[in-house]
Amino acid sequence: HHEASKLVGQVMLSLMDDAGIDFECAGGLTMGADPVGTAVMRAAVDAGRPVDAFVVRKAQKSYGMGRQVEGPSVEGRKVLVLEDTSTTGGSALTAVEGVRKAGGNVVAVAVIVDRDTGAKEKIEAEAGVPYLFAFGKDELGLG
């Protein structure tokens, strides 16, 4: 939704700023992360900051350029991996792996809603980066 997108971008950008996370690119596993990455990119543009958005395929393409990460290059850049929500952490970890294979430096994983099902612990242990979330399920009355 056009109104929600602007707010999502602002909330996620503020979340990263408050945590002191500096990044140049934002995105994650397609499809859940696509609108979140675009929202963050848009909020950054509105704030006068250059942030590119990208998408990560579940697997590397077997044709064309054979890429798993699509969009502006993440190679050598500070990357924020995004997701709308996370249950097991699997989608975010797939995105982290794809970004790292493409030469990106993953600085954090961030989600809009954390379901409090262990994704934070799994991602921090396996990816070795901070996991941040804007809202817990209890805050949204989803307890």
Rank of each mutant, 00 (worst) to 15 (best):
E3A: 14
A4G: 03
A4K: 02
A4S: 07
K6H: 13
V8A: 13
G9E: 04
Q10K: 14
S14R: 07
S14I: 01
S14H: 09
L15G: 08
D18T: 09
D18I: 06
D18R: 09
D18F: 01
I21F: 06
I21C: 01
I21W: 09
I21Y: 11
D22N: 05
C25W: 00
C25Y: 00
C25H: 05
A26T: 03
G27I: 05
G28K: 07
L29P: 02
L29V: 05
M31D: 06
G32L: 02
G32A: 03
P35E: 03
V36D: 02
V36F: 03
T38F: 10
A39Q: 05
A39N: 11
V40F: 12
M41N: 02
M41Q: 08
R42E: 13
R42W: 04
A43C: 06
A43Q: 00
V45I: 10
D46Y: 06
A47K: 10
A47G: 06
A47R: 13
G48V: 15
R49V: 04
P50A: 15
P50T: 13
P50H: 14
P50L: 15
D52E: 06
V55P: 00
V55C: 11
V56E: 08
K58N: 15
A59V: 10
A59I: 11
A59D: 14
Q60W: 11
Q60E: 15
K61Q: 08
K61R: 12
S62K: 15
S62I: 13
Y63S: 15
G64Y: 13
M65V: 09
M65G: 08
G66Q: 14
V69T: 04
E70S: 10
E70L: 12
E70G: 05
G71V: 06
G71F: 11
S73Q: 15
V74L: 08
E75T: 09
E75D: 12
G76H: 03
R77N: 10
V79R: 03
V81A: 02
L82Q: 01
E83R: 01
D84M: 02
D84H: 05
T85Q: 12
T85K: 01
T88Y: 04
G89Y: 05
G90W: 06
S91N: 04
A92H: 07
L93W: 08
L93G: 09
T94E: 15
A95I: 04
E97K: 05
E97L: 11
E97R: 08
G98C: 03
V99Q: 14
R100F: 14
K101W: 01
G104M: 09
G104K: 03
G104L: 02
N105E: 12
V106I: 10
V107E: 14
A108S: 12
A110S: 09
I112P: 03
R115Q: 08
D116A: 08
D116W: 00
D116M: 02
T117P: 00
G118F: 11
G118H: 09
G118Q: 10
A119W: 15
K122C: 07
I123K: 02
A125M: 13
E126C: 10
A127S: 07
G128P: 03
G128C: 09
G128L: 13
V129S: 02
V129Q: 03
P130C: 01
Y131W: 10
Y131F: 15
L132S: 05
F133H: 04
F133L: 01
A134G: 03
A134S: 10
A134M: 06
F135A: 08
F135T: 13
G136N: 08
G136D: 08
G136A: 07
G136P: 09
K137Y: 10
D138V: 10
G141E: 14
G143F: 05
